[in-house]
Design a protein around this nucleic acid. Structure first.
Length: 661
DNA sequence: TTGCAAATAT
DNA sequence: GATATTTGCA
């Protein structure tokens, strides 16, 4: 029943074998997938041998899995099959074998895709697939076999013997071939894997629970999952238990999460207080191309398409001073929605948030050069992150008379999220995180242009922004917008997020710039520096994507109650004019007022924005360990964290991610 | 349950 | 010695 084809000589050791079971009633599809995957395994310099097992119906798939219990690493299944559809198969496979199932189908309807992902599909590829789609499958399989997912799997012990063998025999070449970061790190990584291995081995061999808990390594992908959970719940409401439920990672304990949450909060606080990273923290790191974890692919793809669609159709609202600012809202962070926000419907992803006074998480979809980097133009202000533009540098020059047609079109974007996997770093493709204001200060026409400066050397988390376009990372150096494209640590490739090489939790270097539009108009700066083969992260649609009620991960709670006003932006939502609050808030969050002097007229300070006006008591109490600055930073940084992940990156989250070969 | 901080592992 | 993670405790 099952046809087994090995991509190379059959005598290689099990450690180098990747078994993929492909299930499809269409034999053409079977052979295409099979053949394509094999080409990847041929090309893969990790010397991994691919064993493809193809079956034509789900029942054969199940019996093959039983027969080869523990041998198959990944299942790729067609969705629509006569006897049992792919999702039913997935359910069974998950239940019985705890194996990831990738769903493929020609059905590209959002509902189906999301349902599949919610149901637990590892990811979803739409037929006819491109080579890159299948390359992803390959990468995923490699990740499953060698990567971080096994970190947790090793702990949970949910997989069968052979997989432990796989883990144990993790080849060092895998790690070494990953990239040339530096020898020290690599050896450390190897060390970790070895350690993991022995932990698992001990447990298995002794078949008694170790007295000590195996250490959880917070890999990038695990951290990513954590961040997703945080975003769904809202940082202010995220407690370990809820995060745990949301993350749904077997083997991960509440304590693990509590600890990590603690660490993450410390990180945010540190960022908030320091205003960013020190140059030493950031220098010398080379930006990498990152992939997002598999489950994000489709959501992001959908979101991106949706955003493309909306932007293409949407109006471009002119900013003041004759500059047009692409306006596109859509908060990725539900808890930051305007208090007046209505609950998203199932298709809320499709809802245009135009005209709503979102506060954060707005996304712009910037495309070609000369589009304004980011920000939602609303009557108030917004902080947001741009959608990535496929292959385009996104400068912050304002768009004069931008036509919607200049915006990104979904047609060529549709698959871009999967394209370039494994390709060398491309140019900066990200729009910025930023703050923009149209009602800034006295309302005399200043327009906040967001400038997201992401630079591993001389940018900081720029908390303070000045109207003349300068960024002042509190206590640190100023950033000249013209320098944004220079000084990157790796041949000029901008880098968005970098964790400190030394393991410290250092912030991404993100700069905010608020400047009068006409000023910015003369600038030539990037709106952001973020590179990667897979720049697709749209922060906004995340929450909106979720609906239904099956998978917690995909099912955020309903939007916050109206009284939930985030960020201390005012007075219970009655007045969204944030900037009216600016001048009466000299405080710096965390009490480090010595670090950030009072900002006078015409200057903006994020802290100011976050600070509750003294005559307005906070609308709600933030939980312990969460402050407004942390919340803000979380919102701002998360998209970048998420975006900077390799699908198979098992680098600990606070280390520099490894790069794809 | 949570978050903090001490203890322990790496 | 510095960090990351677990564990104990209020």
């Amino acid at each position: 029943m099952a046809s087994i084809q090995s991509s190379s000589a059959p005598n290689s050791s099990l450690s180098n074998l990747i078994h993929i079971l492909i299930v499809d009633d269409d034999s053409t599809s079977l052979s295409v997938v099979s053949a394509t995957l094999k080409t990847f395994s041929y090309k893969d310099n990790r010397e991994l041998e691919l064993i493809v097992v193809t079956v034509k119906n789900p029942f054969d798939a199940l019996s093959t899995l039983r027969l080869k219990r523990g041998l198959i690493d990944v299942v790729v299944s067609d969705l629509h099959m006569p006897e049992m559809n792919g999702m039913e198969l997935q359910k069974q496979v998950e239940e019985e074998f705890q194996l990831p199932v990738i769903i493929m189908s020609s059905d590209d309807s959002k509902n189906v895709i999301l349902r599949s992902l919610e149901g637990g599909a590892a990811f979803y590829i739409v037929k006819p697939f491109s080579k890159d789609d299948l390359k992803n499958v390959w990468h995923y399989a490699v990740a499953i076999k060698t990567g971080d997912s096994l970190t947790i799997k090793a702990i949970e012990g949910s997989r069968e013997p052979s997989s432990s063998t796989l883990v144990e025999r993790l080849s060092l070449e895998d790690v070494n071939s990953a990239t040339s970061i530096n020898g020290e790190k690599l050896s450390r990584k190897n060390g970790r894997k070895e350690e993991r291995k022995s932990t698992r081995e001990d447990q298995e061999v002794d078949s008694q629970p170790a007295s000590k808990k195996p250490k959880v390594v917070w890999t990038h992908s695990l951290h990513n999952r954590f961040l997703l959970a945080l975003n769904h719940i809202g940082l202010d409401k995220a407690v370990p238990k809820r995060i745990l439920e949301c993350m749904r990672v077997r083997g991960l304990s509440r304590e693990n999460i509590a600890s990590h949450l603690q660490k993450y909060r410390i990180f945010l606080k540190k960022v908030a207080e320091s205003g960013g990273c020190s140059p030493e923290d950031l220098s010398g790191r080379d930006p990498r191309t990152y992939f997002a974890p598999s489950q994000l692919f489709m959501m992001l793809k959908n979101a991106q398409q949706e955003y493309s669609r909306r932007v293409t159709r949407g109006s471009i609202q002119p900013g003041r001073g004759g500059n047009s600012i692409p306006a596109l809202g859509g908060s990725s962070f539900r808890n930051l929605n305007s208090p007046n926000q209505q609950a998203p419907s199932n298709n809320s992803m499709l809802q245009s948030p135009y005209g709503q006074s979102r506060l954060f998480g707005n996304a712009n979809y910037a495309n070609q050069a000369n589009q304004i980097g980011s920000g939602l133009e609303s009557s108030n202000y917004s902080i947001g992150a741009n959608m990535p533009s496929h292959g385009a540098v996104i400068p912050n020059s304002p768009t004069h008379g931008t036509s919607p047609m200049q915006m990104y079109h979904p047609h060529n974007q549709a698959r871009s999220y999967l394209q370039n996997l494994g390709s060398p770093p491309l140019i900066n493709r990200f729009g910025g995180v930023g703050i923009q204001a149209t009602n800034y200060g006295s309302g005399d026409g200043d327009i906040g242009i967001i400038n997201n400066s992401l630079n591993t050397i001389n940018n900081y988390v720029g908390i303070r922004v000045t109207p003349d376009g300068r960024l002042i990372g509190s206590g640190h150096m100023q950033l000249n917008m013209n320098e944004l494209s220079s000084g990157f640590s790796d041949g000029g490739h901008p880098c968005l997020m970098n964790w400190a090489r030394n393991g410290n939790m250092n912030a991404a270097s993100i700069g905010f710039n608020i400047a009068p539009a006409n000023y910015v108009a003369q600038r030539e700066s990037f709106s952001a520096g973020f590179e990667g083969a897979n720049q697709f992260f749209p922060p906004a649609p995340f929450t909106d994507v979720y609906h239904g009620n099956s998978t917690p991960m995909l099912l955020p709670p309903p939007p916050p109650p109206p009284q939930h006003l985030q960020l201390g932006l005012g007075n219970g939502g009655q007045n969204d004019n944030v900037f009216g609050l600016m001048n009466n808030s000299p405080h710096i969050l965390g009490g480090n007022s010595n670090q950030q002097p009072h900002i006078g007229h015409g200057e903006l300070n994020v802290s100011d924005m976050l600070w509750e006006p003294t005559n307005n008591p906070p609308a709600y109490q933030l939980p312990q360990g969460v402050d407004q600055m942390s919340t803000l930073l979380h919102e701002l940084l998360t998209p970048y964290f998420l975006n900077s992940l390799h699908i198979d990156d098992d680098t600990p989250w606070n280390e520099q991610p490894s790069s794809q070969a």
